[in-house]
Amino acid sequence: MDHAPHLIVLRGNSASGKSTVASELQGNLGAGTANIGQDHFRRVVLREHDIANGDNIGLLANTICYCAGIGYNVIIEGILVSSHYREMLCRVIAEHPGPSHVFYLEVSFDEALRRHQGRPLGLEVSPEEFRRWYVPSDLLGVPNEVVLDATADVRVTVDAIMSALGNPVFTARDARRFL
């Protein structure tokens, strides 16, 4: 790539559509775009609960910086509750060599719960537990943070993000090496 990589922070409550939007966004941005999912690192790689000062916070920061440092555009997506992740995200954003974009997918508790109950995790996590996870309007409070309506169609949301990015077209150094 002939430009500094973009950093896209995509946050929101559980069942707000972050993972779906991130996957679509990665497809739109093309080869050389890393999609870093908080849940994968926390739940699968480390098998860790989401706690203050959790080990996944540093792992996410290092992964974001590594991927950006080798020229990838980076999407970091997850609940990334501000009380646990704000300091790390603000540091990564401040140190990022290219454009940084922060999006928050806003969804009501009732809509998030409805979506949650239709997922496999809905069988494991009760509505009462889910309510404890939900943090309304959990913004980072960083400049230019954009709040998006999570009830909008995925395509509408991805188009809004692409527009905010300036509808970039990326050309990977060696497109043959990417899936």
Rank of each mutant, 00 (worst) to 15 (best):
H40I: 09
H40C: 11
H49Q: 10
S100A: 11
H40F: 12
V156F: 10
T20N: 06
G118H: 08
E145P: 02
L7I: 00
D39M: 08
Y85W: 10
L89Y: 04
T63S: 08
L10W: 00
V92D: 06
L165K: 07
I51L: 11
I76R: 00
D159T: 14
L148R: 07
V154C: 14
D149C: 06
T171D: 11
R47A: 08
V81P: 06
E129S: 14
V81L: 09
Q38S: 10
T20E: 06
T33N: 02
D39I: 13
D50A: 10
A164E: 13
L123F: 03
L29R: 02
A175W: 11
V21D: 05
E106F: 15
R114H: 10
E95S: 07
G30A: 08
D153A: 12
A152C: 14
L46S: 07
L59Y: 12
W133C: 09
I79T: 15
V146L: 13
R114N: 02
A22C: 00
G17I: 04
D138C: 01
A15Y: 00
E77F: 01
E95P: 10
H116A: 05
E128M: 08
T157I: 09
V156Y: 07
S83W: 09
F41T: 06
R173S: 14
V44N: 08
S19K: 02
L59Q: 12
L121G: 13
Y104W: 04
S163K: 11
L29T: 02
L113P: 04
F41Q: 11
A112I: 04
C90T: 08
A61S: 15
A52Q: 12
R11K: 05
T151F: 04
E87Y: 14
R114D: 09
F41A: 09
V169F: 09
P143L: 05
F103V: 01
H3N: 08
L60Q: 02
L25A: 08
R177W: 12
G118E: 14
E111Q: 15
S137T: 08
V44S: 13
Y66V: 06
A164V: 06
A4N: 13
H84V: 09
D39Y: 12
P120W: 01
H3K: 10
T157G: 10
D2R: 13
S126L: 03
V154H: 04
A4K: 11
V154Q: 09
H101I: 04
D174G: 11
L7Q: 00
L123M: 14
L121N: 14
G166Q: 08
A175I: 12
I76P: 00
L165V: 02
I161H: 04
L60E: 10
G141E: 02
V92Y: 03
L165I: 04
G71C: 05
E145I: 02
A31I: 08
R119N: 06
I76L: 12
A52C: 03
M1K: 14
F130K: 03
S100G: 13
A175F: 15
R42H: 15
I79G: 07
V81M: 13
G122Y: 03
A94H: 15
R115M: 01
E128P: 06
N28L: 13
S100W: 05
G78S: 11
N35V: 08
Y72N: 05
N53K: 11
I70P: 05
L59K: 09
A52P: 03
V9W: 01
A150N: 01
